[in-house]
Simulated assay, not measured.
Amino acid sequence: MEHSNEDTLANEAALRFCGSADYRLEVCGGGTNNTTRHLAYAGQAYMLRLYNTHEEWEKAAFEHQLLIALRRLMPGLPFGIPQPEMGAAGVGLIRLENGKLAAMFRYLDGAAPDFGLPAQAEAFGRAAGQLSGALEQVEQQEAGLDLPAYPPYYALAAAHPSCPLYEVLRFCWEPSDEFAGCMEALDVLGRQLEKVIPVLDKLALLPHQLIHGDLNASNALVTPSGEIAALLDFEFVTRDLKAMEPSVCLWGLLPEAGADEQAEARAWVSLEAFWRGFIEVRPLSAAECRVIPELMQLRSLDVFLHFLGRYRDGVDDASMLLRQIPDTAARLGQVEKHGERLLVLLEGQ
């Protein structure tokens, strides 16, 4: 039976971590940034991760350092977080023969959430707020914590080494034939990028702390009762605006572009429930609340730059970027469409 390259790499990593071939790997659902496998060994369940976005040791090492500190300093968190496991490798992070990084984490139980259910959305808000508070305390208490390798969202010029902003704008205004069908969406992205660049310095003056930076339904698990069982994937943790954490979450909860009136109303109920849960445990200042719509726009632009960078680096072929361009442009439009209603909600905390 022919194995894919991902299977070969996963088996190389599993053998290193387990120390023998007496293990079982199973394909599981994962995000677009990494390859993940269920790993069963010696009566224990683990998650194996192969890092696809980068091969930079310091980025993954910071994630592991933070997770260990978070577990040690914040043992009372009401949800699980990933914990690196060393196994036979003796270290929690290894480099494979082809240069890729791999890690093994203890398996966390739970089901995929449905944030269309207001109760789950509110639980997600509370958990996001609790994590925000915990990350702030870890930053204050862990004197030896390294500096995060990822830049804050507002540092767009440093968002991806393969995406200097002048080249991104040129890509938006003068796309190659391969992306000519996305001209309208690219125009939206280019105009928003030009609009946001002058306000980045103003955003940088707001309160900062460590943030997860990528909290969404794909990075959460729920219990049978709908509470948050675990928050996952701390790969992109960085020091950023405190208000950026809920902004990323709200961005993911916006009504879909083109949704009918009933679907839009349901999305707003969940969005409001999330915000209620978040501010219950993590209030923000009026100044922070006012910029959240701008930060949601920034999230769209950062996602676009992330996938443009993956395409330029050869990590993805054009098909992934062709999907992301209209999606991020549509989300920009949704933030603009719902901007006034968002501000009423946010400033009414």
Score class of each variant (00 low, 15 high):
residue 157 A to V: 03
residue 72 R to Y: 03
residue 110 G to S: 05
residue 189 L to M: 02
residue 12 E to Q: 10
residue 186 L to N: 02
residue 218 S to W: 11
residue 134 A to N: 12
residue 145 L to D: 03
residue 8 T to V: 15
residue 269 V to G: 03
residue 164 P to F: 15
residue 109 D to A: 15
residue 254 L to W: 11
residue 237 V to D: 10
residue 118 P to C: 08
residue 24 R to E: 09
residue 126 R to V: 13
residue 98 N to E: 13
residue 313 D to S: 14
residue 348 G to Q: 12
residue 226 G to P: 06
residue 217 A to Q: 08
residue 257 A to Y: 02
residue 216 N to E: 02
residue 176 S to K: 07
residue 203 L to Y: 10
residue 115 F to V: 00
residue 237 V to A: 13
residue 37 R to A: 03
residue 183 M to C: 14
residue 47 M to S: 15
residue 199 V to T: 13
residue 144 G to S: 11
residue 78 P to R: 10
residue 41 Y to K: 01
residue 17 F to V: 14
residue 334 Q to N: 01
residue 33 N to T: 01
residue 233 D to K: 01
residue 165 L to Y: 07
residue 14 A to V: 10
residue 185 A to N: 10
residue 45 A to C: 02
residue 128 A to M: 10
residue 124 F to C: 07
residue 24 R to G: 13
residue 69 A to F: 00
residue 127 A to P: 04
residue 162 S to G: 10
residue 206 L to Y: 15
residue 197 I to A: 12
residue 105 F to K: 00
residue 218 S to Y: 14
residue 141 Q to F: 00
residue 345 L to G: 10
residue 60 A to G: 06
residue 246 P to H: 00
residue 248 V to N: 01
residue 271 L to A: 03
residue 331 R to A: 10
residue 120 Q to D: 14
residue 193 L to M: 04
residue 336 E to Y: 07
residue 166 Y to R: 14
residue 159 A to E: 02
residue 89 A to L: 05
residue 84 P to E: 00
residue 205 L to K: 15
residue 49 R to A: 05
residue 113 P to F: 05
residue 153 Y to E: 00
residue 14 A to N: 07
residue 250 L to F: 08
residue 140 Q to E: 11
residue 2 E to C: 06
residue 222 V to L: 02
residue 92 G to V: 01
residue 343 L to V: 07
residue 262 Q to R: 10
residue 330 A to L: 09
residue 278 F to S: 01
residue 200 L to V: 05
residue 124 F to S: 05
residue 74 M to C: 12
residue 321 L to S: 15
residue 339 G to T: 01
residue 327 D to T: 08
residue 347 E to T: 08
residue 129 G to F: 08
residue 178 E to S: 09
residue 82 P to S: 04
residue 332 L to R: 05
residue 48 L to D: 06
residue 26 E to I: 05
